[in-house]
Design a protein around this nucleic acid. Structure first.
Lengths: 214, 214
DNA sequence: CGTGCATGTTACTTGCGGTAACCGCAGTCT
DNA sequence: AGACTGCGGTTACCGCAAGTAACATGCACG
């Protein structure tokens, strides 16, 4: 019964944790990445120290929250990647899925990408080595794995796949970020342009008249 | 004489400003993106309010500092872009230049990429819409311009060039960030892999045996 | 009943961005 | 000379957010 009690407690703790995460989600969706711990606690109907008991520090809460969204997004991306179509179509579907996601919930997206990692706690041991958003890294690694699994890249293929994974993800991210800010064209146009880039059009397009090309 | 006096003052103010920027540079190089205004002021041998008189707020100082480095980096990139060689070589040179820069001074690079934009001033009007690092945007626009100037992309070419500019820059950035953290290969290898990606190898490589390719 | 133990609170500390108010010294005007 | 002004500088402060210590409460178990 000690065990049953433990599990009971653990269950309730997990439920609580989820409620807290959903509250955090709501407030982040409303206030953006600058959501304060106080605000999140208030939204959850409790006070700060409980948050800290559950998540350690803000980074912990961020990590938990990010994991949820990242997992969800990665699931969508995997689905697009696994669709029964040719390579180009799958690439386009994946790009479109990502762009649709960031378009649908820009606030969450910004939170994931810009954790505002600066730490000014008395303790300077905050991990400064952490820099870019974990989301990018995870997407990069994931894509790398898919590439490596499915394409025959020859010797050194694993490394090449990782470079490509991170590179493609970065391309998607930067273009998406820019597009989200300026909305210079439709989503489908953007997808086509990026896919064209990935398909090597940069290498084959002609120079402009009167000078050496790019 | 009013004018001469004004210019004198302006000169000295500009000199001061430069000194301050160099001090800020030093401390950012030492402490990373989390450098505090106090620390910067101390390094410059003065106190906070002067910094604020010169730069308005932290964002202003960041912007000034970022402009310096961004300008310098963009100059290098332009040089690489303008080298007398064929397109592929120029692309590789550009990638290598960027990677060499971030490799040489990772702290500055992190500062530029992650301004820790969160604003908690009493004034809530802080521009939350600003998100990703201006450096990325500027590089993207710059590259877009070069692409648009030199390549004949047909109708809609300007838009395509911008997408590509931001996309390529993002690819470079994400791959570089990952590489800087894990150092999985040499810089030249990374450059080759990225250039291969840009050259459309993704589209032409064979599927792995036994399943549909990526 | 009292003893754990998890849950919750209030009240505090620290450190940062940002500002107000004051200081002192050049030069200038009368 | 002596009051006026502008500018580089400082101290001392506000507000706010992260994070913590210490105290309160409810509930199972012996």
């Amino acid at each position: 019964m000690d065990t049953t009690q433990r599990t009971d407690q653990q269950r309730s703790a997990d439920r609580r944790r989820r409620e807290l995460l959903e509250a955090a989600d709501r407030v982040v969706l409303r206030d953006g990445p600058q959501a304060s711990m106080n605000a999140i606690a208030a939204e959850a109907g409790i006070t700060k120290p409980i948050l800290y008991r559950h998540f350690g520090d803000k980074g912990g809460l961020y990590a938990a929250l990010a994991k949820r969204h990242t997992d969800a997004l990665l699931d969508s991306l995997r689905a697009a990647l696994d669709a029964p179509a040719d390579r180009r179509e799958r690439v386009e579907a994946t790009l479109d899925t990502y762009l649709a996601a960031i378009e649908a919930r820009p606030q969450v997206y910004r939170f994931l990408m810009h954790p505002a990692e600066g730490g000014q706690p008395g303790d300077p041991g905050f991990d400064v080595g952490k820099h870019s958003a974990p989301l990018l890294r995870r997407m990069g690694e994931e894509l790398a794995q898919v590439i490596e699994e499915r394409l025959d890249l020859g010797p050194g293929g694993q490394q090449l796949a990782r470079v490509w994974g991170h590179g493609i993800v970065g391309m998607m991210h930067a273009a998406g970020d820019w597009w989200l800010g300026e909305r210079p064209c439709s989503r489908t146009e953007l997808v086509r342009s990026l896919a064209d880039l990935l398909w090597g059009r940069l290498a084959t397009v002609d120079d402009r008249l009167g000078g050496p090309g790019f």
